[in-house]
Design a protein around this nucleic acid. Structure first.
Lengths: 348, 348
DNA sequence: ACCCCTGCTGTGAACGTACACAGTAGAGTT
DNA sequence: AACTCTACTGTGTACGTTCACAGCAGGGGT
């Protein structure tokens, strides 16, 4: 034993989990060398590395995160912050896709995810100290709607964060990752127009979200580019919920019964629209082509299955995690726009 | 300054967050007294308490969890472990209800929730050391299906955990919290029978889950108690998914076209059944009464809205959290069965 | 006058890790 | 032969907190 252990030497299985002291003793090296092996093994002889690794396996050593965190001044964790009321989330299939995607992306880096919800203003105030004290190293921010009041709190706390989708409003340089909503909308519209549809209605998303705006823009652009007359009666605005999709569709059918297609800004709303259309005794896609957006799990759960635009959620979550970790390591903010993909199924 | 601070004294706002040293200096007391105030203030004079609290507010102090964790040998966090493949989760509205419920219940105790997914065997193996090293103080276990292999790992690691629903299989004393599935099924069946229905079919849940078994048992019991002849053709087994509900309903309609009600073991399957019934041109509840189970968000999203059995998810998550924290504090295991509630809407 | 007891306070360890620093040996260069 | 440089190793200390212990005053009992 070359190390002057201040505490009485501890054998394996003596109750408490083994520490680097025990590893050092077992491997016949010093704490410093053990620590170096744990960080990747630069400047450590192969012999020492093997000895330490053998000791790790033998003793079943796992690093004590609290101790590491204390000295490195880093939490070693990342928060997933949901600043949205619960009822909105239950209907949003994208939320869980993103949450689980981020969890798994973080798992690759051995970074635990701390889930924090802050739907109300009171909850939001409660968690600010938590962030200010840097109990997490960074934040993945989920907020589908409106300008998020947490952004400036996070900026003030100097805590790295990445938004899912471009945040509305002005807040200096902000990292975000999102899909190319406008190009996705354009692709779908091109597909519908090339299929010969001309009376194309739309059920757009809420116009206080970037996604909602962009998808409507894409809709309009393609109509112009194909020289199709623009009809205001063909445009309705939903809120991404199934119910609003059904309601908008009802409105469209009564206002413009001659429509031959509808571009819906989310699969969930498209599902609602399908129900309305079915109840009206019309056939999809025979009478009306229905196009969704998201390629969420509902797209394949409904009948007929939805032709839709696939948002690359796996790549979005992965990219958010990568951006956040980069920012935590000192790199600057960045924005990433990922391409979407047309998925043709039965509804259009 | 009565405290011999080994590090150069630090003023507020000098970069790094304030520590109890700074608080002690500011309040004119010792570290020990500050620490005592932080733990609740037993054996501290009111004057000292006020001084410390004033200093906390003035300096914006927040405790360093890593340091506390290091000395108390407790992580101060709790894991929410999902050992289920992703695709199952997307369709299960109860999952998110429970997850968000637990997050909020834990927030009341200032305990952060760490989300961990382990759908595959490989992932499961990866996280065992994490648990063994006690990186969390306890685990909330979500697994709707089959016997869970994580249970024995957790028991071996000596880590407190609470299951959601009674786990199948033998594993000694295990804490769990669940709803009274059988009594819920009995209540619903009593309601249907009292409404005059006699040809009552059922779409049961998977028979490798306690809930699925219990709800089917309740169905059978009430038929017997009302002296209604039991017909095997009226029983189908689904897997809680929307698609399986639709398929089972199709089967029922062809096998027993004279049925006048169907008791479905989950709202999601009931939704599928509604679709099938609607497509067959039949009316709900006129021709067929449809009864769901769960009172999940879909119950009110569908048309007609579902008469269903409400599972008290808010109380379940709260109870799980309470049990877990009690167990972490040294108390023994316990099982909690919570009552359900009949919610009458339009479908029955 | 003595004692004990109670309420309050300050001090010295730990907790387990990472990092800066100093030191060693050996290979290569001049 | 003296040197520099590189690869590797061990030691001391700090991170911020809690806890056990000791100390101290003052009140109430003998």
């Amino acid at each position: 034993m070359t190390d002057t252990a201040p505490n009485r030497s501890r054998r394996a299985g003596s109750g408490r989990p083994p520490t680097i002291h025990d590893l050092a003793a077992e491997a016949g090296v010093s704490r410093g060398t053990v620590s170096r092996v744990l960080q990747g093994g630069r400047n450590v002889s192969p012999a020492s590395q093997d000895a330490v690794n053998a000791a790790i396996r033998k003793l079943g050593y796992v690093v004590n995160l609290a101790a590491r965190s204390l000295v490195t001044q880093r939490a070693g964790t990342v928060a997933f912050l949901v600043s949205e009321t619960q009822d909105v989330l239950f209907e949003d299939p994208n939320f869980m896709t993103l949450l689980l995607g981020c969890t798994q992306a973080l798992a690759k880096y051995d970074v635990p995810l701390v889930l924090i919800t802050a739907g109300t203003e009171a909850e939001r105030r409660r968690i600010i100290p938590y962030f200010s004290a840097h109990h997490v190293d960074g934040v993945l921010l989920f907020s589908s709607h409106r300008g998020n009041p947490m952004i400036e709190h996070l900026q003030r706390a100097g805590l790295p964060f990445v938004c899912c989708g471009k945040p509305l409003g002005r807040h200096g340089a902000v990292s975000y990752v999102g899909a190319d909503d406008r190009e996705g909308a354009r692709t779908m519209m091109r597909y519908l127009l090339d299929s010969g549809r001309r009376r194309i209605a739309t059920i757009a998303g809420p116009q206080d979200t970037p996604g909602g705006l962009e998808r409507l823009t894409g809709y309009r652009e393609l109509l112009s580019e194909y020289g199709v007359r623009h009809d205001k009666n063909l445009v309705t605005i939903g809120d991404y919920s199934r119910a609003s999709g059904a309601a908008c569709m009802e409105q469209l059918l009564s206002r413009t019964p001659d429509l031959d297609a509808v571009f819906v800004a989310s699969d969930l709303m498209a599902d609602g629209a399908l129900t309305t259309i079915g109840r009206a005794g019309l056939n999809v896609p025979g009478d009306i082509a229905v196009a969704g957006f998201d390629d969420s799990p509902v797209a394949t759960a409904v009948q007929p299955q939805l032709t839709t635009i696939r948002q690359p959620w796996d790549r979005i979550s992965e990219s958010m995690v990568r951006q956040l970790l980069a920012q935590i390591s000192g790199e600057g903010t960045a924005t990433v726009i990922l391409p979407t993909e047309l998925v043709v199924r039965e509804s259009a």
